[in-house]
Design a protein around this nucleic acid. Structure first.
Lengths: 341, 341
DNA sequence: CGGAAAAATGATAGCGCTAACATGTAAGCG
DNA sequence: CGCTTACATGTTAGCGCTATCATTTTTCCG
């Protein structure tokens, strides 16, 4: 507020100001702030009064420089506008903030070089720990992280070989499970609609799960049965149109995201195809709308918020010097059978 | 990565290490990093080589302490798991990161005292600017922000009297507009379903807009026609059930969030009520699903991402010493008439 | 009540960087 | 060729806090 600057030329009070006003040394003020039990009651009361009176607020930048710990945890995610990621972040922040950490957030837009540059910048800020979305990163990112020697959690997807720790669910296994479910329901020709794999390990793994399940059941994976597109409702509608065009005999479609599934479902209805009688549809994520559409969507539910919570807990535990039970945490998933398949 | 710490006891290189290795003073290294044009070509090349060789990364904490600018912009929002807010944040981060700032994010969970404590903590971190969600804050929050003398943008909602700057749309006006639209379509008894107002100025304003439009049209505002609930699809379904129970003659319902409207829409269909013939439904937000449900939802579209962009731009402009044209920016809204009303 | 242990408090040297100023060196010109 | 001007580089004193060690005061007990 530039217009207020002039009215208030007061420098913000420092530790030394509190100290001299209270007639103690700076270290005593520090102790009042950080280990009150070690200060005599009378002294403590006096110092606390002064702190309130002059409105002292510690400078966390200076503290960071002196103590070599910033009190910040970084999270690098692809985008915020994805409910799975947003809920993980909510779980993460809800967990780490009460432990005295703040969340520094970076969005890479699914670009791993952008992720790398964010990681570099955050290390430059000396964050105490890092959460990374997904398990695919550039070699340089991994190297920097290893060299930094701070706790790292990769989240969302699962891997056998994390940089440090990982918490998530197996996209491959979940995808396999729901494809297997469709196979078990004896649908002929099962199609796949998914996100472009690009730099998105989740998208890749979900497709892989579909293919593995199909192969395991000795079903051919016809490229004409597979459509990859962007992640929104409209794309789902367009994708199933393409699919129906290429293979009119398709009897079931597994969409690797509920948004796609919902779009596909509406498109089928617009074309007068009954679900699940003419064509079955399954989704992934169990977004709120999935249980409400008619027919309700068969899908996979994953413990989004919980992934964030656990990731935050693992990071805080490590930062507090506590041992973490397992470096690899499978948060699991749940097949939710509903009417659409 | 505690297991790697032992292998790499190397202290991270400092500016002074680069300087001595390159045979220059620290200030020359600083200039290479920050104003390369001011350094002779040969010197610059030599220093840059050394930086790469020893893998020097500046310490932004130390820089912050010395320069009195942290390079961080804070955002305090209620929750991340709200697509409006998430998109605003995406716009904000996409705008400020290229300008060299990082986003420090705090979620208050709709509690204004929690918001206050986050603001206090972020000021403690000496963030260069702050984005606040909504326009309702505790007196202490406002006071701290004024005293801090940094640029502040309040976003989402609009107010005549911002702490510093504000960018958003008028929830009152938008709510009024859509209610007015329903009145113009000659629906008798128009109901309202909204979020609990609690500490949520948006929810309050949306209800206010409904009431103003009704009064302007000389319609009574019957409390039995108004239901307030939590913000999800299920709640929308339950709310309209309550409404139909209390006032079976209700002919149109304005839901102050699309999630509620979608829930209401499905509930009506389950009860065999045709939309819009038996009962019309209007929403707010134009979430992706709104255009896809059958019938598609009449709703209000707001420039979410753009609000974030503009907020970020205003903050960066101010931080760069540029003048901001207007402290109050109305990003507007758009009535989207569709089949549901 | 003397002396040791425990409790309370203090002095000081940085953390790694930048702002402000100082100095040195090359280019321009009558 | 001396003098000014611009360019290139260097010196120094902190920023506000914490870690470490040193010192003083209180408590306890034979």
């Amino acid at each position: 507020m530039s217009n207020l600057k002039a009215t208030l030329p007061v420098r913000r009070p420092r530790l030394a100001d509190v100290a001299s006003a209270a007639g103690v040394s700076t270290m005593t003020v520090v102790r009042v702030l950080r280990e009150p039990a070690k200060v005599a009651l009378a002294t403590r009361a006096r110092v606390e009064q002064v702190i309130r009176d002059i409105g002292y607020v510690p400078d966390l930048i200076a503290r960071g420089l002196a103590s070599n710990r910033s009190g910040m945890i970084a999270a690098v995610i692809p985008v915020l506008t994805n409910s799975l990621i947003a809920e993980i972040m909510q779980g993460l922040t809800d967990t780490v903030v009460p432990q005295g950490f703040h969340l520094l957030l970076g969005a890479s837009g699914f670009s791993s070089t952008e992720e790398e540059s964010l990681v570099r910048a955050f290390l430059s800020r000396r964050v105490d720990a890092i959460y990374l979305s997904g398990v695919g990163h550039t070699a340089e990112t991994v190297k920097m992280l290893q060299r930094a020697g701070i706790p790292v959690v990769e989240g969302g997807n699962l891997t056998d070989d994390p940089i440090d720790m990982v918490v998530g669910f197996s996209n491959v296994a979940a995808s396999r499970a729901i494809t297997h479910y469709l196979i078990g329901r004896r649908y002929r020709s099962i199609g796949y609609i998914g996100a472009f794999p690009g730099n998105n390990d989740r998208a890749r793994d979900r497709r892989l799960g579909y293919e593995l399940a199909m192969k395991r059941a000795h079903r051919a994976v016809d490229p004409r049965l597979c459509v990859e597109t962007t992640l929104d409702i409209d794309s789902g509608a367009r994708a199933i149109a393409t699919l129906l065009d290429r293979r009119p005999d398709v009897r079931a479609v597994y969409c690797s995201a509920d948004a796609l599934a919902v779009g596909a479902l509406y498109e089928c209805q617009r074309r007068g195809r009954s679900i699940p009688d003419d064509i079955a549809i399954a989704g992934f994520d169990d977004i709120p709308i999935a249980g409400q559409v008619v027919p309700a969507l068969t899908t996979i539910r994953v413990p989004r918020y919980d992934i964030g919570r656990r990731a935050g807990k693992m990071l805080c535990d490590r930062l507090a010097g506590r041992r973490v039970r397992s470096r690899i945490v499978d948060a699991g998933f749940e097949l939710v059978p509903r009417a659409s398949a």
